[in-house]
Design a binder for these strands. Structure first.
Lengths: 187, 187
DNA sequence: ATAAATAACAAACAAAGCGTTCAATAACGT
DNA sequence: ACGTTATTGAACGCTTTGTTTGTTATTTAT
């Protein structure tokens, strides 16, 4: 890929994320993104069709990284199959989030976080679902597998949002403990 | 309140909800709402400052009703204090939703449901919080009350979304059972 | 190193949407 | 029936959008 393209693409992403820290997604204009990224108008439209397109691309780039690294760690650790393993997939995810190599936390903290949650939830749901299949657990419950998967990934996302709203006072390890406390009893 | 005002206000709300069934909130124009509601342009702006204002007002009207009726039922039934009570606050809420007197389900089912979730979650969180205080339960857990409240209301909302996505195949009673199964073990 | 290909640019454009104003008309409450 | 108040429709300036054009700068391939 052309070095010029990489630079402008990154500049647009960064400008977009920076603006999202200050104002709502709906109220951000393409012109503002252009100015913040310091590029030409036509350049923006050469890269993205619309603002919504930019949003989608950004989400794909960030969340896929997050989930990929989680899947990698799951190969060595598993979901919660071994009760004594201190580092679960979720714990890894939390640590990864806190280190914030990518800007996922910024997006989940911003005013328009709901928009990003859809993408994050979808990725996470897929992760949990595959992990569930991998560890053929005893299905003695009266609960549909479907419901359970949704409950787990949903609870995880809700915890992260709660964590962010409370200004991230807890460590990833603490959060992992909380999460185990509400999830393991029902597995 | 003037009969004319009531009618146009209702017409705008209905038009707005109808449009939300077809397209994203962001892509709905004020002109479309005006046409759908069959009113004059200046009339719309006499009622609402902006499209966002309309959104806010609609949420306040719908969700406050939902929550109010839930609070009423909580006075007679309680949260989950008495384990043998078949009709919990949540069950009432679910029944109320399914009957869909108001259009809450339509909004939570639409493409821009995330926008409405913020309001719904806030209302629900408040409900759970007050109910928790009312039934001074044993706090022998290592979990912060704060976290627990968020987990419960968050899980409830996630369940409703899961229910909607799956085309509402379960009855409110079934959902209530599912919910109890994942919540009561940690209380 | 040079040439061909490609990306960035600035400026200008029509089209669409926004929010406001105003005089005329219709519906309302009492 | 009366005065009051909401609705109407047309017009307005303004902002934003997405496209187009010719030119300049950078990269890639030879």
């Amino acid at each position: 890929m052309d070095r010029r393209q990489q630079k402008t693409r990154a500049a647009i992403f960064n400008a977009f994320i920076a603006l999202l820290g200050n104002k709502n997604y709906n109220n951000i204009t393409v012109q503002e993104i252009i100015d913040e990224a310091n590029i030409g108008r036509s350049t923006f439209y050469a890269h993205f069709e619309t603002k919504d397109d930019l949003l989608k691309e950004l989400c794909m780039e960030l969340f896929s990284h997050i989930i990929d690294s989680a899947i990698d760690s799951s190969h060595t650790h598993g979901l919660y199959s071994d009760n004594s393993v201190p580092n679960s997939v979720f714990c890894h995810l939390l640590q990864h989030l806190e280190e914030n190599h990518n800007n996922v936390l910024a997006l989940l903290s911003c005013e328009s976080s709901e928009i990003f949650l859809r993408y994050f939830k979808d990725s996470l749901n897929e992760l949990v679902r595959t992990q569930f299949v991998n560890q053929n657990r005893k299905n003695n419950q009266s609960l549909p597998n479907d419901f359970l998967v949704n409950h787990i990934s949903g609870s995880f996302v809700e915890m992260i949002l709660w964590w962010i709203r409370g200004h991230r006072k807890q460590s990833p390890t603490e959060l992992d403990q909380y999460f185990r406390a509400v999830i393991e009893p029902i597995l």
